[in-house]
């Protein structure tokens, strides 16, 4: 009998049906929470998912940094015990493609731990329930007068080539008209400290915002400062710490008053947070506490370069959504990168 004969094919049909049924029932992928799967089939390990933004200007982390973090995490015995107790076998790294992608995946609760830009955190769906456990800190950042919260300010400044550089006080009307036609350098990340906060303050003080269509998009605050000092544009909007740092590196700090004129300095906003799913909040989870500890230690060991991490909580960030709402109210979403 050969399989080419019709009768033979009919005889094989039940066996083939059973095979397809078994294949359909077998678990696939690593998303299953069931740790006691059938021993006869391969089961993907359950990973603690770490989300981060790929490097873009001064925000984000490199793949190398995150791999170093993962290596550091798996070497920590108490953390790995806590992971095992919570049913995690290891750590998965998930790079997001920009702030929009990060926001979508946060809202979908795709991450257990995430390094989140402040703007994204402010825009997330509160229902996702992520909790802040740490915040970033750079040397140039400022510390709140009370407590240890790390803050940043935004600044709008003019170059000496601007016709309003030496005008004091600034008359809102002619200066507002000037802003409407001036080319302004801003940061592409549209972050809170370097974009939302200073532009909101500018709008509050002068009642206008420069048209986004004529923005010169630069990848970082330092680049904004350089564009203004080089003479590509006359007005810059960036984070104040970066402005001071760039001037200092170039040896121009002593001439600061002659080289730039700050028009608006924004209210301080906290730095980018590190968040975890509510189940991993350190107050309730041993794994959350261990994660926080190891992350902080890793950052102190300069694992993230110039960025360190320090403890933070949700209460430090309560004003941020209001600032974003004010920005949207005064300026609107049309002031986004075209």
């Amino acid at each position: 009998m050969t399989f080419r004969s019709p009768s033979a094919r009919l005889a094989l049909a039940p066996f083939l049906a059973m095979l397809f049924a078994l294949m359909a029932l077998a678990p696939v992928g690593g998303q299953s929470n069931d740790a006691a799967s059938t021993p006869t089939l391969s089961v993907a390990p359950r990973l603690l998912r770490i989300g981060y933004l790929r490097p873009e200007g001064e925000v984000g982390f490199t793949r190398g940094q995150m791999e170093a973090l993962r290596a550091r995490l798996v070497q920590d015995a108490p953390l790995m015990q806590a992971c095992a107790a919570a049913g995690y076998d290891g750590f998965g790294l998930y790079e997001t493609d920009g702030g929009r992608d990060m926001l979508r995946r946060l809202n979908a609760r795709e991450f257990d731990l995430a390094f989140v830009p402040l703007r994204v955190w402010a825009e997330q769906n509160p229902a996702a329930g992520y909790r802040i456990i740490l915040q970033t800190r750079r040397e140039r950042d400022i510390t709140a007068t009370r407590g240890s919260m790390v803050l940043q300010r935004g600044v709008v400044f003019l170059s000496p080539r601007s016709p309003f550089f030496a005008t004091d006080p600034l008359d809102p009307q002619p200066f507002g008209a000037y802003l409407q036609r001036a080319r302004v350098a801003v940061v592409t990340s549209e972050g809170m400290a370097e974009y939302v906060a200073p532009l909101t303050s500018l709008a509050e003080r002068f009642g206008v915002a420069p048209p986004a269509a004529d923005f010169l998009w630069m990848e970082s605050s330092a680049e904004v400062v350089k564009a203004v000092l080089a003479g590509l544009v006359d007005v810059g909007v960036c984070e104040q710490g970066a402005l001071d740092e760039t001037l200092g590196v170039a040896g121009l700090r002593d001439n600061q008053a002659r080289l730039i004129r700050p028009v608006v300095v924004s209210r301080p906003v906290p730095t980018d947070p590190v968040v975890v799913r509510p189940e991993l909040a350190p107050r309730d989870s041993v794994l959350g506490r261990e994660l926080k500890r190891v992350l902080r230690d890793f950052s102190i060991e300069t694992g993230f370069g110039a960025v360190s991490l320090q403890s933070a909580q949700d209460s430090d960030y309560t004003d941020v959504p209001a600032l974003l709402a004010r920005f949207n109210e005064l300026i609107g979403r049309e002031l986004r990168r075209p």
Binding site: K226, A250, L259
Partner: peptide
Amino acid sequence: AKRLLDGREVLVHPFWYAL
């Protein structure tokens, strides 16, 4: 030096030198 649309050349490195 970077050339702009109006034909000017702007010194971008060192960015502070032209000041």
